[in-house]
């Protein structure tokens, strides 16, 4: 099946946060009230009951001066998700059309995924001792609907469809933006981490939108997953096996020598 995803065009977004509300509504997520932090952003980060947020990023560029950006932020549905590889319970799976789905039934709340994720997206829901995150509305899409966020978007900043088609639209849009006042306009998600199942058209470089320029699975996690987990544990059966061999040989040698004392070195 063709990869299905959301294209988010930041140049069309008015930061109305309709997507945030629609997401809460469809996924039946209770409100999380966070204290006012001096800007328009409702939540510091995604959390156990908030799968998507609109980030408000204020900054100062030495050349262009002050800028004020907003961006919809949620799970990037990586093609080779780190969360899936570290999960000891196999709670994560990839759907045939590219969504990274987390099954709360299998989750045991170990939070390995939170720290393996290059975007730290999976969040811990303490009251259930489980991890939660954006599902790309698996339940809606598999019934032929569009994700709640994309359906509600009033400006067309969010568009759901086949990734290949959306990528073409994104390329054209980025080209248009570059020629019309946004010389640094770019696409995010096309090549990052081998291609994310989430596409962004940005009016500036990704770092101006709080996105990592070159997202990577943390080195500690790859070392742990690729070296420690598969190979290191073999020391235990080796120790057990050695003891078993010794148990037999010591007794064989003792019998051969006709030695029935408590043994030991002389």
């Amino acid at each position: 099946m063709a990869k299905m995803t959301n294209l988010y065009d930041v140049s069309k977004c008015t930061a109305c946060r309709g997507c945030q509300v629609a997401c809460k509504d469809w996924n039946q997520l209770p409100a999380v009230i966070e204290p006012f932090k001096g800007n328009y952003q409702t939540h510091e980060d995604t959390n156990g009951d908030t799968f998507t947020i609109v980030k408000f990023i204020e900054g100062e560029d030495p050349v262009d001066g002050v800028y004020w950006n907003f961006i919809k932020y949620q799970c990037m549905h990586c093609s080779d998700p780190a969360c899936m590889s570290v999960c000891p319970q196999g709670a994560y799976s990839k759907t045939s059309w590219g969504a990274t789905y987390h099954d709360p039934e299998k989750c045991i709340g170990c939070q390995y995924c939170t720290y393996a994720c290059p975007f730290e997206i999976p969040k811990y829901r303490a009251r259930e001792d489980k991890i939660t995150k954006c599902t790309l509305c698996v339940d809606r899409v598999e019934e032929g609907l569009t994700p709640a966020c994309a359906r509600t978007c009033p400006t067309g900043a969010l568009k759901f469809g086949e990734r290949d088609e959306l990528l073409q639209i994104a390329e054209e849009r980025a080209k248009f933006l570059r020629a019309n006042g946004f010389p640094r306009a770019t696409i995010y998600g096309k090549v990052e981490l081998g291609g994310l199942n989430k596409l962004y058209v940005l009016t500036d470089t990704p770092d101006k939108f709080d996105l990592p320029l070159d997202p990577k699975v943390p080195g500690q996690i790859t070392f742990w997953q690729n070296w420690v987990q598969p190979y290191f544990g073999w020391l235990i059966p080796i120790a057990l096996g050695g003891s078993a061999i010794s148990f037999v040989t010591t007794r064989i040698l003792a019998n051969k020598n006709g030695d029935h004392t408590e043994g030991g070195h002389e």
Binding site: Y112, Y115, A116, P218, Q220, I221, F223, W224, V228, Q229, F232, G233, L235, I236, I238, A239, L240, S243
Partner: peptide
């Protein structure tokens, strides 16, 4: 992130010694 591999390595070394 560092705690995960450290916990595993320590566990394996300690368990090997315990065996």
């Amino acid at each position: 992130r560092l705690a995960y591999p450290i916990h595993d390595i320590s566990m394996v070394l300690a368990t090997m010694m315990v065996c």
